[in-house]
């Protein structure tokens, strides 16, 4: 069991002195004691290209789990991430903007519409799906969860999935888990500071 510590923004206010105007607990971050390595998995992106753990290396990423026929939460979270990225453009170099990965855990319904789906939010977003056994590897690797419910009379079925947004670093490892709704400005600030701390740690190594 990996021991985790839960940090509310209040902890960052103390640590970084962001100022008194910052509200309590508006972003919730869970950071592992040590960055966690992603397991091997073989999925495909919305362009049909292989998507493996390698695709996480060399840049920061934000990953969220969902399904394309989710009417409320998934589009809400993705739009929320669009705002985070837009806030980050004010704080970091364009090369440092995180890659955004949407993991569709309902491959039958997700694969046919994935390209249009992610492009609707941002043409740079990456939509990923694949067989359940491969999805399970990535989802478990980011400490996530999903479950496909039984089909109802009309053929529709429920999909339950973790709510968090996973932050991975250029080392391809999991550095943090954010709980939506994400306050765009505060999350952008958190991520920018995370990048600075990471770069500093890399230099001193």
């Amino acid at each position: 069991m990996v021991r985790r510590r839960v940090l509310s923004l209040a902890a960052f206010v103390l640590a970084f002195g962001l100022g008194a105007s910052v509200g309590w607990a508006e972003i919730r971050v869970v950071e592992p004691d040590k960055p966690e390595t992603l397991p091997a998995f073989a999925l495909s992106d919305h362009k049909g290209q292989p998507f493996t753990a390698e695709r996480y290396k060399g840049h920061w990423s934000l990953t969220t789990i969902g399904f394309t026929s989710c009417p409320d939460v998934c589009p809400f979270v993705l739009s929320n991430i669009v705002e985070v990225i837009s806030q980050m453009t004010l704080r970091v170099h364009p090369d440092k903007l995180p890659q955004v990965v949407f993991v569709g855990v309902d491959p039958g319904r997700d694969a046919p519409v994935m390209a249009d789906y992610v492009a609707h939010f941002d043409p740079k977003f990456i939509g990923v799906t694949g067989p359940h056994e491969e999805l399970a590897k990535l989802v478990t690797g980011i400490d996530g969860f999903y479950r496909i419910g039984k089909a109802k009379k009309d053929g529709d079925y429920e999909v339950q999935h973790s709510a968090s947004v996973i932050v991975t670093g250029p080392d391809g490892q999991v550095h943090a888990k954010l709980s939506p709704p994400l306050d765009p400005g505060k999350v952008a600030e958190y991520l920018a500071r995370k990048q600075i701390a990471y770069a500093r740690a890399q230099r001193s190594n």
């Binding site: 009417p71 409320d72 739009s79 789906y117 492009a119």
Partner: peptide, 12 residues
Amino acid sequence: VPVAPPGVKAHA
């Protein structure tokens, strides 16, 4: 009603 991504059959 938020504009839904194309092809998506569930709106809110």
